[in-house]
């Protein structure tokens, strides 16, 4: 019996010791599925998230120190780039796809419009290296970081070691991106019975569930899969989507189903940014679907919406806006990091 007591004391002591003092660096919102990211391989800490946030906003990551991650993933646009249909890199170079909004990334099984990247940690390598984006390389970034006293200190605070490696750099970037959780829209509050939809929003919600929710599945508003949503091919881009990666014809014109959260802030829409307004997107699904071999089965049958219904649907989609996410001071440019003197 005494031994049991000892064991109990030991176990509780161990549990207390391992408890994070400022816990809840990452919370799974109520009724949400389990995240897919393997946090056990990259344990969150405040110092690492802070470091990742600094890296995210630092143009040091680009070849000529002009472009940061935030250039195309600005917080006020739900971490995408408005006014540009296609991504915009160093020397005004233009990419071939629309930069996606970043949020709820811990629940994603693959990244990029064509799913080329299988793990969030490796995602940052793509824009860092792409000649039309940041045009640099992780080797160059790491060697520049190692030359910066500011970063050596920040890496020391985060990892207990001031030697900067690619692994530590990418893991810190992941940590900041994982912290970008958007789960406080009106829709979320309605689901938690803290608020109510207006009549129009409620009508829109029921239309959404009938016509859109199969792919844009709640609560993440994506099924994390790929689909051909019937967009005519843009001959100036000739983008075949997932087929480029898988080399299977069944994947021709398939693109990642994006989340609909924070749509209001993240225009333009589609993989090539062809639609500037939500109403154009809705019109596409009602009257613009182009039939082809790989068209999503969900879109084989026409979606019929009256003009009133379109307005109702739009009203619902706007309930997915999460102001507290977009204006969260913890996600904004870390002035304190880059100009510590400003605090005085």
């Amino acid at each position: 019996m005494k031994q049991l007591l000892y064991l109990f004391v030991l176990v509780s002591a161990a549990l207390l010791a391992f408890r994070n003092p400022k816990e809840k660096l990452f919370t799974i919102p109520k009724k949400w599925p389990k995240p897919l990211y393997d946090f056990s391989q990259n344990k969150l800490s405040e110092a690492k998230i802070k470091l990742g946030r600094a890296l995210f906003y630092d143009p040091l990551l680009s070849a000529d120190n002009t472009i940061s991650c935030a250039s195309c993933h600005s917080p006020y646009n739900a971490f995408t780039h408005v006014d540009h249909d296609l991504s915009h890199g160093i020397n005004d170079r233009i990419g071939t796809r629309n930069s996606p909004a970043l949020m709820n990334l811990a629940w994603k099984s693959s990244f990029m419009w064509d799913g080329a990247i299988a793990n969030l940690d490796m995602q940052s390598l793509a824009p860092i290296s792409h000649p039309d984006e940041m045009g640099s390389s992780i080797e160059k970034v790491v060697s520049e970081l190692n030359r910066s006293a500011l970063y050596r200190k920040a890496f020391y605070q985060a990892y207990g070691d001031s030697l900067i490696t690619g692994e530590k750099t990418l893991k810190a970037l992941s940590q900041f991106m994982l912290s970008l959780v958007s789960s406080d829209s009106k829709y979320d509050r309605v689901m938690l019975k803290q608020e109510q939809f207006t009549e129009q929003e409620a009508r829109g919600y029921s239309l959404f569930r009938q016509n859109c929710a199969a792919c844009h599945r709640e609560p993440l508003f994506t099924n994390d899969a790929f689909a051909n949503n019937g967009l005519p091919v843009d001959p100036s881009l000739n983008d075949c989507g997932k087929m480029k990666i898988s080399k299977k014809s069944a994947d021709s014109l398939l693109f990642k189903v994006p989340t609909l959260r924070n749509l209001e802030y993240s225009f333009p829409y589609m993989h090539d940014g062809r639609f500037k307004k939500l109403s154009q997107v809705i019109n596409h699904y009602v009257s613009g679907i182009q039939h082809s071999k790989t068209l999503a089965p969900e879109l084989q049958k026409p979606i019929i919406l009256s003009s009133n219904e379109k307005v109702d649907l739009l009203a619902f989609l706007l309930t997915l806006s999460d102001k507290n996410f977009v204006f969260n001071p913890d996600f904004a440019y870390p002035k304190d990091f880059f100009t510590p003197a400003a605090k005085d």
């Binding site: 080329a116 793990n119 992780i138 690619g166 692994e167 530590k168 990666i245």
Partner: peptide, 19 residues
């Protein structure tokens, strides 16, 4: 996820445009 040592992407043995 990303790994260190010989697997660190700074070794130049990782494709950047895809996994």
């Amino acid at each position: 996820g990303v790994k260190g040592g010989d697997l660190d992407p700074v070794k130049g043995m990782y494709w950047t445009w895809q996994t």
